[in-house]
Design a protein around this nucleic acid. Structure first.
Lengths: 254, 254
DNA sequence: CAGTGGTCTAGACCACACC
DNA sequence: GTGTGGTCTAGACCACTGT
């Protein structure tokens, strides 16, 4: 007889390990636990088996099991408390966390977005752009303006500036793929980005382009992306029709 | 003679360890490395001593040293590549990453913000608020409306709803402390939040309150915060004068 | 008190990048 | 090859929680 309530989940399904696989053991475990949680096999508030026993059951060492658990904690799927145990967070929280990934990408929403390249040119950098991209003033930079639509309606005008000497970007590539996919394919190791989200009244031109009334609000977003070497890879200056677009994101460990 | 270029940094300063301290060793190391990086003792692109040698120098085991390194990677301060080494990212990137923490908080910008509580009441939950807070309709909830100023000028109207049965919030507390500080002090374990940032034209009332022209744009932000148990702790519905406020944030590992 | 997660050690083998 | 980080093991002790 255990004096303390047994964990609510003996083990999620049965976790299978492939020691021949190149994918790390801790990751195999983490993924399968994650799927069990997403699938609802592990219900909210459930206490998981403690990590030592779990490691034992799976024939793993404790540090490996711990690393799997840490992965779940970092993803916000479980909460751990010393002396208490590991609990699954509520599905409501989990669903909200999934939003994080899309950010300014509505592809997932089933809105079948399309992107039209309005202009694509190599131009001399303005002082402002040169400063941000960290290139000499008037040196050539790629300038791309795209119009993004969802369900046929325009929702955003995306203006991007990229240095010319780091990789090759083609107009046709941009038409069918996202800019970031394209950069990754070109061998760029994206590291981080900073962005500023603001708002203002639309100019007449902008209102016309976005199909909005003359007096309407737009969201603005400026983003600078860096690669692993700290080099600026891309600068974007975008506007969104505020009436039909908003930014969603989630924050962890407040 | 080493055939390969020696790391550029022998060791940052000298790292001191206090094994009697309750603060974990890996954290002591990580913090001191972080400070050395911030201080510029470790310049961008510098290669750090490899983790094994570093562990040896400090009298630590390799896993402990690794954990310190992982902390720096998670913070975006260094980049590691198998077979290559650990490099410090450029200060430009680092500075941009520091912005993350403040988010909607301008206290740091030296704008000496002030907050005025416009109303503070316990009211029956509207259907919408009840749904978000996950409480029965018409059950009592705390409603707070605050006006936030920077340099005397109003920049935001913050409207918050909180359940009444979880903790005690007082009007005086809100006047001098932030809401989240107050919640933490009340023993709430904040876990995560989701937020939506949008924009629209200001209503006449809003324009007047924010000291903006009749036709002006506001940023809107709705945020729902959850605690460790998945319970909704707070729902906020805010507006910001777009002319004088914007949201800054940074993204890691794109 | 027993059970939990948090930290730490001292080894080992492997995959990968560069020379 | 040689050196790097990435993974894994099998132990150990401690701090905290709830009974």
């Amino acid at each position: 007889m255990s004096r303390r309530p047994a964990p609510d989940a003996t083990v999620a399904k049965a976790i299978t390990l492939d020691r021949a696989s190149p994918v790390p053991l801790y990751y195999q475990v983490a993924q399968q636990l994650e799927h069990s949680i997403e699938a609802g096999d592990l219900t909210p508030g459930m206490r998981l088996v403690n990590e030592i026993e779990l490691a034992d059951l799976l024939g793993l060492s404790r540090p490996t099991m711990r690393k799997a658990m840490e992965y779940l904690v970092d993803k916000g799927l479980v909460v751990r408390q010393r002396g208490v145990g590991t609990r699954v967070v509520s599905p409501k929280v989990r669903r909200s966390l999934e939003l994080t990934s899309l950010f300014d990408d509505l592809a997932e929403a089933g809105l079948k977005p399309s992107t039209e390249v309005l202009s694509f040119a190599t131009i001399p950098a303005t002082p402002e752009v040169a400063g941000i991209l960290m290139v000499p003033a008037d040196s050539p930079v790629i300038s791309v303006v795209r119009l993004r639509r969802a369900l046929g309606q325009p929702i955003a005008r995306l203006t991007n500036y990229l240095p010319t000497d780091r990789f090759v970007i083609t107009e046709v590539g941009l038409a069918c793929e996202g800019l970031y996919q394209l950069l990754r394919r070109a061998g760029v190791q994206l590291h981080s980005a900073t962005q500023t989200i603001g708002g203002r009244l639309a100019t007449p031109d902008e209102a016309r382009l976005l199909g909005e009334p003359r007096s309407s609000a737009v969201l603005t977003m400026q983003r600078t992306a860096y690669d692993d070497h700290g080099i600026v890879v891309e600068y974007g200056d975008h506007i969104y029709a505020a009436a039909r677009y908003s930014f969603q994101m989630s924050l962890l460990s407040l």
